[in-house]
Each structure stands twice: as structure tokens, then as C-alpha cells.
């Protein structure tokens, strides 16, 4: 094999084979798939992302969310690895987990660019996340996932939220979170024993009164460790008086995108099983 030309032709042909087979052929097969419509009056599915949701897709993209979250529901016939209580081996974990109502097909993605199918499930699948949680849940979870799931290893995206001094009344958009999560955005805060002592000195009576009013629990002795712990926990769960956490435009956009993800809901004829 000392001839450059033979080498070149061979290398060209072998590589072209996979290019034709794996790239060009599926390209011809799939490039012109239309949106689905049963009648002309009906709104077609899927629809392209627009406005805030499109901006949110960009936020999702640039922060690499898809490195932990896939966006694809696999068939009920996929996999054969779990045993139900009757001892039968079952398939199709994705739908059973409630991640979607049907499997995804190429048509679900005709308006996606980039198409972020994902290759990893460090976190759960998001193909249909828009139908699972509310905007408020998404905001709290994005701000600090551990405020909702203590076991979560998802990063905090507190940098997409701003902490502002309340002028007048609290904004409607402020996240409903206790001071435990808002004093140090992104972290879980606890006062040091000295700080806590100072706080009790300054406004202990007010906190105690509020605790009695809201818990309805009569407490006679405030000095036991249990009651002190209860009081601290109560106080940490109440919002900061002067500060609020507001979503930036980025956070609003991201949540709009997450809410728009409903890829495994609308029935498509080709996605029966």
C-alpha cells in the first residue's frame, strides 16, 4: 500500500458510505415532515416556539441544561428491566414514571433548533415538563432546587434572580420563600448562635407572638431546646421583612420555555404504542 491515490480513493469511499447512509438518507427521509392537522380549522401540532419561550430556549441552551436533562419519551416497548409486583418483567419506564403520556416521534421536533434530545438523565426527562409543574414551582426550583427537594444535586440558578429591597408592598412576582433561602441567594442560610441571640434580643417578642398566632400552639416555656429550635425553624421559614427575590427576564424566559415543553401530550397517529 504505497500508492497515495489508492489510499485516498479508499478513504473517500468508505467515509462517503456512512455519510450517505447515516446523514443524507435520513435527511431526505425526514426533512419535509409537516405539522399534524386533522382538519384545516384545527390548530396544527407542533407549533414553533415564540416570544419569551424562544428566549427561554436560548437560556436553556447556553447554560447546558441538556447535559443533565433529556427531552425524549421512549416507547412503552423500550427496555425490559423491571419487575412488577406479580413478578412479570415490564417495559417502558418513561411513561410509567409519568414523564409523558406517549412516546416521542420525529414530528414532535420539526421546529426545534438546536434539537436538544439530550444524552444524559442525571435529572429527570423534561419533554413534557410543562404539564407537570406550575410557574411558581419552576421559579423556586430554578432559584434553589434544594428548597423543594433536599436531595437534589441540580445547580442553583440564583444568578438569574435579583434580590431587591421592598419599596411599598411586596411584588406579586416575588418568590414565596422563607429567609432561610433568601438571605444568601443560592445557599441555605442559618444564623450563628450569636446572631440568633441578637435577633431574639431585638425582636424576640414579635417573633414569639407571630409564632403563637400562626401555629396556634400554646407555649409556656421558651427556654427549652425544643421550643427554641421550633422558634428558629419557624422564623427561618418566614419571608424576610425588607427583601424580596424577583426573577430577571432570563428566569422568566426560562420558565416560559419549561412551561411550553409539552412534547408528549398531543396524540399523533404515528405514536400509538
Amino acid at each position: 500500500m504505497d500508492r497515495g491515490m489508492i489510499l485516498f480513493i479508499g478513504v473517500l469511499l468508505t467515509f462517503t458510505s456512512s455519510w450517505l447512509g447515516l446523514v443524507l438518507f435520513p435527511f431526505w427521509q425526514l426533512q419535509n415532515q409537516p405539522a399534524f392537522q386533522t382538519s384545516p380549522e384545527e390548530e396544527p401540532y407542533p407549533r414553533p416556539l415564540q416570544g419569551l419561550a424562544w428566549t427561554g430556549m436560548k437560556v436553556y441552551q447556553k447554560n447546558g441544561c441538556m447535559y443533565c436533562h433529556s427531552q425524549q419519551i421512549r416507547s412503552e416497548r423500550f427496555g425490559n428491566w423491571w419487575e412488577d409486583p406479580t413478578g412479570i418483567m415490564r417495559t417502558g419506564g418513561d411513561i410509567r414514571r409519568g414523564w409523558g403520556t406517549r412516546r416521542n416521534v420525529p414530528r414532535d421536533y420539526i421546529y426545534d433548533s438546536p434539537t436538544m434530545l439530550g444524552t444524559m438523565r442525571t435529572g429527570p426527562d423534561l419533554a413534557n415538563i410543562g404539564s407537570r409543574y406550575s410557574a411558581t414551582w419552576q421559579h423556586i426550583h430554578t432559584y434553589n432546587p434544594r428548597a423543594l427537594n433536599s436531595w437534589s444535586i441540580m445547580p442553583s440558578f440564583a444568578f438569574m434572580y435579583r434580590k431587591e429591597r421592598i419599596v411599598g408592598s411586596r411584588s406579586e412576582k416575588a418568590l414565596p420563600l422563607g429567609r432561610e433561602w433568601t438571605v444568601r441567594p443560592g445557599y441555605r442560610w442559618r444564623p450563628s448562635p450569636n446572631e440568633w441571640a441578637a435577633i431574639l434580643q431585638q425582636s424576640g417578642d414579635q417573633i414569639k407572638a407571630r409564632f403563637l398566632r400562626e401555629s396556634g400552639q400554646p407555649i409556656s416555656d421558651w427556654t427549652t431546646p425544643e421550643t427554641q429550635q421550633q422558634l428558629l425553624e419557624f422564623w427561618l421559614a418566614t419571608p424576610e421583612e425588607d427583601w424580596q427575590i424577583l426573577p430577571t427576564e432570563e428566569a422568566e424566559a426560562l420558565v416560559a420555555y419549561l412551561l411550553s415543553l409539552r412534547k408528549a401530550e398531543y396524540p399523533l397517529p404515528e405514536a400509538k404504542e
Binding site: 447546558g64 444535586i153 440558578f157
Partner: peptide, 13 residues
């Protein structure tokens, strides 16, 4: 997840 959290540049993704 609390290691170097809070900055966009050093976020995991």
C-alpha cells in the same frame, strides 16, 4: 451543588 454556586460562568452546564 453548593460548591462555587451563584455565578453564571461557573455553573455546571
Amino acid at each position: 451543588p453548593y460548591f462555587l454556586t451563584g455565578s453564571a460562568i461557573w455553573t455546571f452546564g
